[in-house]
Amino acid sequence: MRVAMFGYQTWGHRTLQALLKTEHEVVLVVTHPKSEHAYEKIWDDSVADLAAEHGVPVLLRDRPDDEELMSRLKEAEPDLIVANNWRTWIPPEIFTLPRHGTLNVHDSLLPAYAGFSPIIWALINDEKEVGVTAHMMNEELDAGDIVVQRAVPVGPADTATDLFHRTVELIDPIVHESLDFIAAGRTDFTPQDRSKACFFHKRSIEDSRIDWHWPAEDIERFVRAQSDPYPNAFTHHKGKRLRVLKASVSKGVYGGTPGRVFIREGDGVVIVAGADARRGRAHGLVIERVRTDDGSDLPATEYFRTMGGYLTDRP
């Protein structure tokens, strides 16, 4: 088959790598220009550079909505388009152009976690599995019939970074298996149960702000979901932003006001947490490592030299 690809960052890069290892011919690559968005400067292996290294024509576009792109696609005569981490809507005149349509590769277990940053949202929400889904594209975002889907378990100490590395390794076998099915003429793919669908927005700095009214268990996952190199979970102390790099749920039960810097426990400092903290029935969050606004990483016991005061969501 002749294959065109739409993709960006490491997800697109791994997809193009997989395609280049198949028996199929990659005839055109469309990717985005480099971005300064915080979540687009990480995992930023260049799709354009990989395509150029292999002599594949490349188009740089923010959106696939111009006449030149459409003309180049028609000239390339692809039998299939494969997309992964294309950041804007692909219109029907493009995704229906090839005779086999368009295969989209998405890093969640669809129909759940369609949209953006699915691994981060899934970890925040205490999902027990994450994964990758290859599906045929239709008019609704991330909603087409599933061709191949694979999952990996989420461990109790896993970070978003751990899960990124595990799921990105699924791209190669999923792409190969999907293309084998499509080239063989298979169309008996699995419709998604749209009653179980949910769509998540692109993350911004506001989404990393800690709410001390959440239970400590939720905040601990929130911290793991925003591990380096992602923008970290943060709070404010004495008017300055403080990033939380490592935390755990306290062994003891502590009461008081959410956000109170309370007492040392183990290798960290307990922060009172939970909407019902005043009842003294909940665990706190043990902060173990922090990063100050000047970029210094410190053990929490070194940063919080005295107890008392509050961590707040605003300066």
Rank of each mutant, 00 (worst) to 15 (best):
P33Q: 05
K34D: 13
K34W: 14
K34S: 14
E36I: 13
W43L: 13
V47F: 02
A48D: 14
L50D: 01
H54Q: 09
H54M: 08
P57H: 06
L60S: 05
R61C: 09
R61G: 08
R63C: 10
R63S: 12
R63L: 13
D66L: 10
D66Y: 08
L69E: 07
M70Y: 15
R72C: 11
L73C: 05
L73G: 04
K74A: 15
E75D: 14
E75T: 12
A76M: 08
E77K: 15
P78E: 09
P78N: 08
D79L: 02
D79N: 07
L80H: 03
I81M: 06
I81W: 01
V82L: 11
N84C: 15
R87I: 09
T88K: 13
T88R: 12
I90C: 02
I90K: 00
P91V: 04
I94L: 10
L97T: 05
P98R: 04
R99S: 12
N104K: 00
H106A: 11
D107Y: 03
D107E: 11
P111G: 10
A114T: 01
A114C: 05
G115I: 10
S117D: 12
P118Q: 01
P118N: 02
I119K: 01
I120A: 03
L123R: 07
N125Q: 14
N125L: 13
D126F: 13
E127F: 02
G131S: 07
H135S: 11
M136G: 02
D142C: 06
I146D: 08
V147G: 03
V147M: 11
V148A: 07
V148R: 07
R150Y: 04
A151T: 06
V152I: 12
P153H: 07
V154Q: 02
P156G: 05
P156E: 15
